[in-house]
Nucleic acid binder design. Structure first.
Lengths: 191, 191
DNA sequence: TAAAATAATCAACACCGTGTACATTTGTTT
DNA sequence: AAACAAATGTACACGGTGTTGATTATTTTA
């Protein structure tokens, strides 16, 4: 957001690099993707790559950051922004729709040869939202709370992974419903 | 198990390689660990490494396989082997104790720069156990079942991750109790 | 539109880890 | 002691890396 509009050339370059990179990630793990390959696939000089990214990891991180930004945006204003004590079904649905619309990248980031650090980051983001929602409405036994939220967040992300893996045969609404049901049921005993 | 007892030299070599490797993994991600480093740390010739492993990934996979073997072993005979319909608290406790006793490797495999494929494998193993336990005792609505089991398995593994991350300040019993409580509560509504 | 600024290209370079080969030395087993 | 297996040392070609400096192309500005 703080970024200036970039040169058309830069926009184009970053775009082809990104496309080539993702195409490669569909076929092999990050660790085996070379800068050379990326540039050949993008039809770009290798020196140009280094003008924008330190290495393929750096490139991946930038893609991941974009993703986190988008998701936290959706999380922030689910049904309108207010904390109801329950996680807003609307927020969950919106996130799932976003995942659906970006299935290609999501599958790469969350499944197969994805980045575990990133998975933990996403899980933490979602977990934090659970914490915010629940501690606002009900008192929490601190000791157990962390584990419970972690359980719920990991479980939710795991559901999303399975959903992606299976080709998203269910609607975001269906999945959101199931997810909230599991989550709230898990909490009901503790607070 | 099917392996013959190895030459003392081989045992020693594999041991020092493994130790050196793990030490490196504590400091940097697998993708940045070189064969050269491993051998220098192990005080071993590079050619010797290649006599036993194809590359560092291969080495990691062998370590992971050992781990999975152990865990599936504990899962199989929790309270004695029979399926009660509930997941045996004893089995869970034993797994957690194993994790505790091998905290160093577990932390490397499951947290930080670990292998996402491996995480999914472990999750699948645990999920399968949930399936076996529950479908044995109660009828399941097939459509939702997969997601629910995935949720529970991911949640459980997530709890273990957090436990490791925090330095295992709680006993295996405490964690096992919390885990089963979350899991069974999640199911109670569906079956 | 011309000039200044920025981006991409091209070619060349030293560097380093890789994987393999083969002869040699060390140790294990029979 | 002899036969075998494992580890060492050395050397090699190969390929990707990251950087540099000069050149060409494109965008911005004055």
């Amino acid at each position: 957001m703080g970024e200036k509009k970039q040169d058309h050339r830069v926009r184009f370059t970053k775009l082809v690099i990104r496309d080539s990179f993702i195409a490669l990630l569909k076929a092999k793990p990050l660790s085996k993707v070379t800068v050379k390959e990326i540039c050949e696939g993008a039809g770009i000089n290798r020196a140009t790559f280094y003008a924008h990214y330190a290495d393929p990891f750096d490139l991946l991180h930038q893609i991941e950051e974009e993703f986190v930004e988008e998701v936290t945006l959706y999380i922030g204003n689910g049904a309108g922004g207010e904390l109801t004590g329950d996680i807003s079904p609307d927020a969950v649905r919106k996130i799932l729709e976003y995942v659906q619309n970006n299935a290609e990248i999501c599958d790469i980031l969350l499944n197969s040869d994805g980045d575990l650090r990133f998975l933990q980051e996403i899980t933490a983001v979602i977990g934090r939202q659970f914490v915010a929602s629940w501690t606002a409405s009900k008192p929490v036994k601190k000791a157990e709370a962390e584990y419970i939220f972690q359980y719920s967040a990991s479980g939710s992300v795991g559901m999303i992974q399975k959903w992606l893996e299976g080709g998203m045969k269910h609607t975001p609404e269906e999945l959101a419903g199931l997810m909230l049901r599991m989550t709230q049921r898990g909490y009901s005993d503790f607070f």
